[in-house]
Design a protein around this nucleic acid. Structure first.
Length: 569
RNA sequence: CGGGGUGUAGCUCAGCUUGGUAGAGCGCUACCUUCGGGAGGUAGAAGUCGAAGGUUCGAAUCCUUUCACCCCGACCA
């Protein structure tokens, strides 16, 4: 491709409304342009990258036995009413009516549609398992779209849905998808981790997320430094931290006027926070409140808390009035002693000895408290967020915490949708049997942004080979003034293309600085420069975008040299 | 939805407090000079000052309403 026929829509200035690097660079490099909040046009350069991702995804899905389909973006309400999600889904489901006043929505996901398709088309156990996938535009009316295509309202997603007679069969496909996803992100040249995940609103049992590691990531993930354990911190199991054995101290009541927070009490009583018991009162499912106990240095994990049958979802803290009713004091002085409401202790809180807790009297705390002697043993659960350095739940190594961008998510759905929508087939006994489902998503447009977050410098994007819109930039200097240079450039361009190289020939009448800056901004990994000066010795200059390595090579060696570069052929 | 902020040329912004015929830099067009790291000069094109209403002799500027966009929180690939 020639730049004279492929306008580079680069801009020098950083757009004012772009927060993160990938968003800024995608606009500066001319990959995307915003149309409205959360809606983007993809320019030719950006679309080339998007298609690269798409193709890798498609190849690996096909290799793993997926069958490509295409389902409409617009979906009839009836199917959503069938699954029960028409009512359950919030305002992010964009609903509208057609001219006949029939209800429709823009598909945020396609479980309903595929389940309907399968219940109509798949009749026999002989036709399963099947794994249908599509690469399709989705629309979610996000509360707050941000970070460019990272959290857009309209985005490109690969979604796959598998149907099975047995859990074993689902396990097989789940594993195949796990493998396919790993290959996809490896081929794309991204540093990623697969982590145990919460199944969230989609429902189901087993689930893994695939995260591209980047400091700007919205998710925190925990992984062991010695084993392959990895989980979203929302999910990461927190093991009980033992407390050193000590002789029991005497139980005492102390005045702690005006000391409410853990830090205040810690400073006032000169006791380290980990020896103070934090008592949180939250709303319960039955309408009352429930007490959750944590070590003072630990934080509550709301996801874990709301999974407890007695705790209301979503998590809501008790009001001051409710606290006073349950504990007869203000929130800063609450403790478990004497409470008549349900009490659940975190595993590590249950290990405390000689600790401090609220006395349920304003301005008073208890010291030297011990379980059993002073307080009954309560229900114990995993309630806290893991922290860096925690023992890994598999017992091997310690947890480290990194930030990641979720680019893929695989679920074992079970029969949630197939049951509700009656997706059944006849089994070997001639009986109707509900199919078991899995679903598997990749945020294709998000992958592009994630790749940039992970691969850029102060000059712009540095594309991994598998994603780059062009492999090689051919930049002749002042070509217009030299017929010889022009002829050499044209010849190089033609032979490079013939050699199968995807080359962007900068034939603009631009100054060298402009060409270099543009090619670096748009992230082309390899650059060939030719000039009058170089021509005198029959050489060209090669420069690598990532490591900045620059060498001169003989003109006739240019193509063999490029083809020998890792990842290019 | 709650809290905060911004709308003026394609982009980044000044002008608004104190009302008086619309500005800069970048980008774009043409020409001259320059030519290995976002050049210099000359000339030019380009704006219903987000929209509506009001106050005023006169509104980008003051008042009211409204829309859009951005940031912080709860949702998600």
């Amino acid at each position: 491709m020639r730049t004279s026929q492929f306008p580079l829509n680069t801009v020098k200035e950083t757009p004012a409304d772009a927060e993160i690097v990938s968003h800024q660079l995608m606009i500066r490099a001319g990959l995307i342009r915003k149309l409205a909040a959360g809606l983007y046009n993809w320019l030719p350069l950006g679309l080339r990258v998007l298609r690269k991702v798409e193709n890798v995804v498609r190849e690996e899905m096909d290799r793993a036995g997926g069958l490509e389909v295409s389902m409409p973006v617009v979906q009839p309400a009836e199917l959503w009413q069938d699954s029960g999600r028409w009512e359950v889904f919030g305002p992010e489901l964009c609903r509208f009516q057609d001219r006949h006043h029939r209800d429709f929505c823009l598909g945020p996901t396609h479980e309903e549609i595929i389940t309907d398709l399968v219940r109509n088309e798949i009749k026999s156990y002989k036709q399963v398992p099947v794994n249908y996938y599509q690469i399709q535009t989705k629309f979610r009316d996000e509360i707050r779209p941000r970070f460019g295509v990272m959290r857009a309202r309209e985005f490109l997603m690969k979604d796959a849905y598998s149907f099975h007679m047995t859990q074993d069969s689902l396990n097989d496909t789940y594993e195949a998808m796990y493998g396919a996803y790993s290959r996809i992100f490896e081929r794309l040249g991204l540093e990623f981790r697969a982590v145990l995940a919460d199944t969230g609103a989609i429902g189901g049992s087993l689930s893994h997320e695939f995260h591209v590691l980047a400091d700007s990531g919205e998710d925190a993930i925990a992984f062991s430094d010695q084993s392959d354990y990895a989980a979203n911190v929302e999910m990461a199991e927190a093991v009980a931290l033992k407390f050193p054995d000590e002789a029991p101290a005497e139980l005492a009541t102390v005045a702690t006027p005006g000391q409410h927070s853990i830090d205040e009490v810690s400073a006032f009583l000169k006791v380290e926070p980990q020896r103070i018991l934090k008592t949180l009162l939250v709303k319960g499912t039955e309408g009352g409140v429930v007490a959750l106990l944590l070590r003072g240095d630990h934080e509550l994990n709301p996801i874990k808390a709301t999974k407890l049958p007695s705790v209301a979802y979503p998590l809501e803290f008790a009001s001051d009035a409710e606290v006073r009713e349950a504990a007869s004091c203000a929130p800063g002085s609450v403790g478990p002693k004497g409470l008549t409401i349900p009490v659940i202790a975190d595993r590590s809180a249950a290990e405390l000895v000689n600790f401090v807790c609220g006395a349920n009297v304003d301005g008073q705390h208890l010291t030297g408290v011990n379980w059993e002697r002073d307080l009954p043993r309560h229900e114990v659960a995993d309630l806290r967020l893991v922290v860096e350095g925690d023992v890994s739940p598999d017992g091997q190594g310690n947890l480290r915490i990194a930030r990641g961008i979720e680019v893929g998510h695989i679920f074992q759905l079970g029969t949630k949708y197939s049951e509700a929508m009656q997706a059944t087939v006849l089994n070997e006994d001639g009986k109707n049997q509900v199919l078991t489902m899995g679903c598997y998503g990749i945020g294709v447009s998000r992958v592009v942004a994630a790749a940039i977050e992970q691969n850029h410098d102060e000059r712009g994007i540095i594309w991994p080979e598998a994603l780059t819109p062009f492999q090689v930039a051919l930049t002749p200097i002042n070509m217009a003034t030299s017929e010889k240079l022009q002829a050499t450039a044209e010849h190089l361009y033609t032979t490079m293309k013939a050699a199968g190289l995807d080359v962007l020939f900068d034939d603009r009448k631009a100054r060298p600085g402009v060409m270099f800056a543009d090619m670096e901004l748009i992230g082309i990994p390899h650059r060939i420069v030719i000039s009058e000066r170089l021509l005198e010795t029959g050489r060209a200059e090669y420069k690598n975008r990532r490591d900045g390595e620059a060498i001169e090579i003989a003109l006739e060696e240019v193509i063999p040299f490029l083809l020998s570069r890792p990842g290019i052929a």
